[in-house]
Simulated assay, not measured.
Amino acid sequence: MNKVRNLLILVILSLVVLCLGIKIGSVSIPLSDLVKILFNQTAGVDEMVTSIVKNVRLPRVLMAYLVGAGIAVSGTVMQSLLGNPLASTYTLGVSSGASLGAALIIITGVTVSFVGSLLLPATGFLFGLLTVLVVLVSTRSMDSQMSNQTVVLVGMIMTLFVGAILTMLTALYQDHLKQLVFWQMGSFSGSTWGKIQIYLPIALVSIFLLWANASSLDVLGLGEEQAMMAGVEVKKTKFRVILLSTLLAGSAVSFVGVIGFVDLVAPHVVRRFVGSTHRWLIIGSALLGGILMVVGDLISRTLLSPKEIPIGAVTALIGAPFFMYVYFRKRGQEG
């Protein structure tokens, strides 16, 4: 019952945070007007206020929540799959790889008619998947046991390497400087209903399929041998989970740029309240990830208003100290 109660608290917090994200900004929206607009009862409401809510605030806040939920779930299953509390789509290079894929599409201006607007998220997914596969293969070649420290180290090296390539592209292609910097710093300012229509089904289907693999993830957390003894097809399950988690994170990065650490922080916090059973953990991580991202975006656009702080900087300021705390606590426990 405690787990259900805690999840209900997260649901309520989600609704509160979503409303605050829509209400607060350079133009403060009266609560009464906000309720009328959300229920499509706009009689007597200023047209400008209605336009701000429907065309700017609402898609931005919803996109932030969906992206936060997606990358938090992705980080959750990555940590469980690799048995590594420091593993995440950011530390394993998925985010930087997806950003590189998006950057190449921007620079080359490539378009594929039958793919249309799905080209960017598809490219982000493929490059993100390629990056994490390189990390895992490289780790296995150096350390057959694939220890936590080696996985994180190789992932961070790959992130830095891909980041260096992105920096070179930024320097070489000045005409696309603004767009390339956007991907590297992260922002929800360009969120539209069109982007939500693409990412929403990706997020919902991927999270549901990962949730459907919850029991397999629970068993994998005990080790590969125990999982095989329990009848889990380890290789197929690992491949499926990596594919879905990379799709979640890679497509998100393609839309909003690199945003790190939410996928590291959310799972650790949620485990304290709902435990390590993935049936609850995946749902809780999605809810908390969405909450954290909306709060982070709210800070990024209001702290120095009218200037906007990149959302990636806000999450890094919170997440980097948390990363160090988890790492050194783990080292202390092992020592």
Rank of each mutant, 00 (worst) to 15 (best):
E308A: 06
L133E: 03
Q226F: 09
A203C: 15
L264G: 02
R272T: 02
P306Y: 09
D263Y: 04
G97R: 05
S74W: 11
L13C: 15
S300T: 05
A214M: 10
L210Q: 06
T123S: 13
K235T: 12
F323K: 00
T192D: 07
T76L: 12
I198M: 13
G25S: 04
P306T: 09
A64S: 15
V16T: 11
E224V: 09
R271A: 01
G25Q: 05
S28Q: 12
L204P: 10
M168W: 08
L220M: 12
S216I: 03
F323D: 01
L7N: 10
L18I: 13
V152E: 13
S80F: 01
I318W: 00
T246K: 05
P201W: 13
L120M: 14
D175G: 14
L172D: 09
V49L: 15
L129A: 11
K178Y: 10
G186F: 10
T167Y: 12
G128D: 11
L220G: 06
V181I: 14
Y90F: 15
D297M: 07
V262A: 01
F39Q: 01
I207T: 12
G128S: 13
M63P: 10
V253F: 09
L200V: 12
E47F: 07
L38H: 00
L204E: 09
V61M: 13
M156T: 14
L58T: 07
V262N: 00
M63L: 15
R60I: 10
L10Q: 02
A64K: 03
N40P: 02
V274K: 01
T277F: 05
Q79F: 03
V253M: 09
I291H: 01
K3D: 03
R272D: 00
S215G: 00
K23H: 07
T89A: 12
N40E: 14
Y90P: 04
L204C: 14
T150S: 05
Y173T: 04
S215F: 13
L247A: 12
R329H: 08
G275I: 01
S32V: 14
H268A: 00
L92V: 04
I107C: 03
I202C: 09
F261S: 00
F188W: 14
S187R: 08
V205L: 14
L317H: 00
V219C: 05
M63N: 07
K178D: 06
V132F: 06
V232A: 03
S95L: 09
